[in-house]
Write a protein that binds this DNA or RNA. Structure first.
Lengths: 142, 142
DNA sequence: CTTCGTGCAAATTATTTGCATGGCA
DNA sequence: TGCCATGCAAATAATTTGCACGAAG
């Protein structure tokens, strides 16, 4: 299927390479590093350059279609441009989306702490995911 | 003054370079990039190598004396190793410490979202700081 | 047709590592 | 004295940029 770009992207040209990249990274729950994306796109669009991948990832981020997230010195591209947070399993390295926590309490806390205006935030939670917890129990029990 | 290292650092040797680095980066409200630290340490300890700065920053992080924070593709070292969050002014680039927000509501939210265990988190708030807001008002008024 | 996107290689930037030597414990 | 830390230079890793050419609008 052809992914139709929207208003925000008026200034960008529709190319085979961009469509291939978009088809790989766009979507909920997708978190890939630049190299992973490069490898995956290779299959759909052999001969594509790494620089092209980086250039497109950047413009897709600028357009708000995807976003770049950095945690623990590792960067990955999140297929969803809408604001949300992340959970990173320190055991298996898996990344999961988490909706942003919002509350009146948090807002008043921030207003008190930061005298200025907060526009957005980026949070990453670190811990052990459900699967890895299960894995541990299994080892202990057996 | 000589900064005395504690238990956590038993395995590290006390050197002039380490003390110089520590005297530059250790403390609340200090947020510097590796290059800034390198430049500042030069003055106290001329001839120190950039690699030494990086090596010491890493071991100080491992020891929990300081911590590395990355936001918007920029990394800086936070002079305080205790967990807390940050506010970054997108206008002037200033970074401020913010205590971590904790609440029962947030905990139950996270438990519901992430079926695993959360051990820590890293949050960066983006916005306009008090000073830059004032600056804007002044421009509009005048 | 004109302008922008692409591929490739070279350039940057940030950080790490190998090695011989010097200095803490 | 023994071993870890340092300085320097070279090595990596991740990302960006210059340039000539091909393709989108």
């Amino acid at each position: 299927m052809r992914i139709v770009l929207n208003k925000k992207d008026m200034n960008m040209r529709q190319t085979r390479q961009k469509e291939a990249i978009l088809s790989v990274v766009h979507g909920e729950g997708i978190h890939m590093t630049a190299e992973e994306i490069f490898a995956a796109v290779q299959e759909k669009e052999p001969g594509i350059g790494l620089a092209t991948v980086y250039r497109n990832l950047k413009s897709l981020c600028d357009a708000g279609i995807i976003q770049k997230v950095t945690a623990e010195d590792r960067s990955f591209y999140d297929g969803c441009g809408d604001p949300h947070d992340h959970f990173l399993c320190t055991e298996c390295g898996k990344i999961e989306d988490v909706p942003s926590f919002e509350s009146r309490e948090l807002n008043s806390f921030l207003t008190k702490q930061i005298r200025g205006k907060v526009h957005r935030h980026a949070s990453v939670y670190f811990g052990i995911c459900e699967d890895c917890l299960g894995e541990r129990d299994r080892k202990i029990t057996s």
